[in-house]
Simulated scan of single mutants.
Amino acid sequence: MNSLTHLTNNIPWQRLTTAYGRGTDIPRLIETGQYEELASLIEHQSTLWQTTPWVLLILLKELAKQKPEQVSSQEIQLYLAVASAINVDEMDSQNAVESMNELLDEKYLWPEDEEDDELWWEEEEPRGYEQEAFFSYFSFSYSLLKDSIPVFTAIMEGNDKLAPDIGELLLMLQSEEASADE
């Protein structure tokens, strides 16, 4: 079993939500490189979802292994969409859970049975969307993107077609970093 399959199989996708329901299809979408569809599931109207940091974790690990010319524009657009949803000025790490793995605790996961999902969404704070957990989707996503700046820089230097989009992404991450330092 390759590391991608192992990592993907250890995440309870069917108990994590996306912008359009459960994350059950995410492993297949990752495996087949369906970045546009993934982007619409993990970022929607400047909101990040339970699945977002996990998708980023997997994609960014794989991105680091790719040659610059192998990277697609759609994948970079996915990272841009996530980065554009993050407002670092509102971030304070004290509001996040301690580790990403904590987001897979039972108290944040949706039930196995999807029958009552509509009722779950109608709750004032649906499971996994309590303030601390919700903030953590943004916080960990930002950390993962920021940690990948060297990877993005290397791709930008080796792929002229992607350079403008990656430059925009790096500016977002660096300007957010500067805002966070002020």
Rank of each mutant, 00 (worst) to 15 (best):
F134R: 03
L119T: 15
A133G: 09
T153C: 13
E130M: 10
P164H: 07
M156T: 02
T47C: 12
W54D: 00
L57M: 11
M91V: 05
S179Y: 02
M100G: 11
S93W: 08
E75A: 05
W54E: 01
S179M: 11
D147K: 10
T52Y: 02
E122L: 13
W121Y: 15
Q94K: 05
A96Y: 09
S139W: 13
P164A: 06
L78C: 08
W49C: 02
L170D: 01
D116W: 05
E118D: 15
I86L: 08
E62Q: 06
A85W: 13
I76L: 01
Q70P: 03
E106N: 08
I42D: 01
I42N: 01
E168S: 04
Q45T: 15
S179H: 05
M91E: 09
A178R: 07
A163V: 02
F152E: 00
T32N: 12
P150N: 07
K65F: 14
E130V: 15
E115L: 06
E176D: 13
K67P: 03
V97S: 03
S93C: 05
E90Y: 07
E36S: 08
Q174E: 14
E102N: 03
N159V: 06
D160E: 14
A83D: 05
L48N: 00
A39T: 13
T51C: 15
S72L: 04
N95M: 06
Q94Y: 05
V97D: 01
E123H: 08
T153V: 15
A64L: 09
E176Q: 10
Q131K: 10
L171H: 05
L60F: 11
E132Y: 10
P150H: 09
E106F: 10
A178P: 04
Q174G: 06
L169T: 03
K65L: 14
L103T: 01
N95A: 04
A154F: 07
Q174C: 07
S99A: 11
Q74R: 05
N101F: 15
V97M: 03
E90F: 12
G33C: 09
E37V: 09
S148W: 02
E62F: 06
S136V: 10
A85T: 13
L162M: 11
P150V: 08
F140Y: 15
R127L: 14
A163M: 07
